[in-house]
Computed example of a mutant assay.
Amino acid sequence: MTKDMEQLLNVRLCERFGDVVDWPEVTSLTASHLRAVVSALGPEDTVLFLAAARRALDEEECRVGTIDLGFGAHLWTHLEGVSWGASPLARTSAWESMLTMHRLSVLAPEPGLRAHIDSALDACRLRLVPAAAGC
């Protein structure tokens, strides 16, 4: 991950969660895994990956109380057919980081994995489509 991307991600996380020193422990741990995902995949593939993770969280939530194979199965389903630029090793790294973030969010449900994912999505989207000058 470039320094610019890391700074942009940190800015987005700080906007949502306040100063780094005040972050809940789960946010500090999740932030390092988000950095690993962005570093492994790059901003474009990270957007695809995190959007799939967001859909997997939504599906997991909708299936509460029913037969459910869990977040990993939903994520796998939402990643099928995605055209990646990243290497298999990078995808595996991102996959493991996301499963770890999900486990952390189960152990410490507040502020929630969605909020972390949304912050990273915002940062990656800003990196890909910077604000137009003069608009």
Score class of each variant (00 low, 15 high):
82 V>C: 06
57 L>Y: 02
96 E>G: 11
34 L>G: 01
15 E>C: 09
57 L>V: 00
89 L>Q: 15
89 L>R: 15
15 E>P: 00
52 A>V: 12
61 E>M: 13
127 R>G: 01
84 W>Y: 02
42 G>Q: 09
55 R>K: 06
82 V>W: 10
110 E>P: 10
37 V>E: 00
113 L>K: 03
88 P>N: 09
32 S>D: 06
112 G>V: 00
67 I>C: 04
123 A>H: 10
86 A>N: 04
105 S>F: 00
76 W>A: 12
113 L>E: 00
125 R>P: 12
54 R>C: 13
1 M>G: 06
72 G>P: 01
103 R>C: 05
94 A>L: 10
134 G>C: 08
30 T>G: 07
66 T>C: 15
101 M>T: 14
27 T>F: 03
29 L>E: 10
61 E>Y: 13
90 A>I: 05
60 E>D: 14
23 W>F: 00
109 P>Q: 01
8 L>G: 06
108 A>Q: 11
84 W>L: 03
91 R>Y: 01
83 S>D: 15
32 S>G: 05
127 R>N: 14
67 I>Y: 08
123 A>I: 07
30 T>F: 08
85 G>W: 14
99 L>G: 01
34 L>K: 01
72 G>W: 02
129 V>Q: 13
40 A>F: 11
9 L>V: 08
93 S>P: 09
13 L>E: 06
36 A>H: 07
4 D>E: 15
45 D>Q: 12
105 S>M: 07
34 L>F: 13
100 T>E: 08
90 A>K: 03
116 H>M: 12
134 G>M: 13
41 L>S: 00
131 A>E: 10
68 D>T: 09
49 F>D: 01
116 H>N: 12
120 A>W: 02
60 E>H: 15
71 F>G: 02
68 D>A: 13
39 S>Q: 13
129 V>K: 11
28 S>F: 10
25 E>M: 14
94 A>R: 00
15 E>H: 11
10 N>Y: 06
97 S>P: 00
50 L>H: 05
85 G>I: 09
29 L>Q: 10
15 E>T: 06
40 A>Q: 05
65 G>L: 07
69 L>T: 08
60 E>F: 14
1 M>P: 07
103 R>F: 13
120 A>L: 11
63 R>L: 14
77 T>N: 12
54 R>V: 00
53 A>W: 03
50 L>K: 09
77 T>P: 03
82 V>K: 09
99 L>A: 09
122 D>R: 15
43 P>M: 06
133 A>K: 15
96 E>N: 15
88 P>K: 05
45 D>Y: 01
98 M>E: 03
5 M>V: 14
81 G>L: 09
102 H>I: 09
51 A>P: 04
74 H>G: 03
32 S>M: 08
112 G>C: 03
66 T>K: 11
87 S>E: 04
15 E>Y: 03
105 S>D: 07
11 V>K: 04
83 S>M: 12
24 P>Y: 05
135 C>Y: 14
52 A>C: 12
41 L>I: 12
99 L>M: 15
3 K>E: 14
56 A>M: 05
22 D>H: 12
83 S>Q: 14
47 V>R: 07
91 R>W: 13
13 L>W: 00
13 L>I: 02
84 W>I: 02
125 R>W: 05
114 R>P: 04
131 A>K: 11
61 E>A: 11
135 C>E: 15
99 L>Q: 13
114 R>Y: 13
117 I>D: 02
128 L>F: 10
82 V>D: 05
104 L>Y: 15
95 W>Y: 07
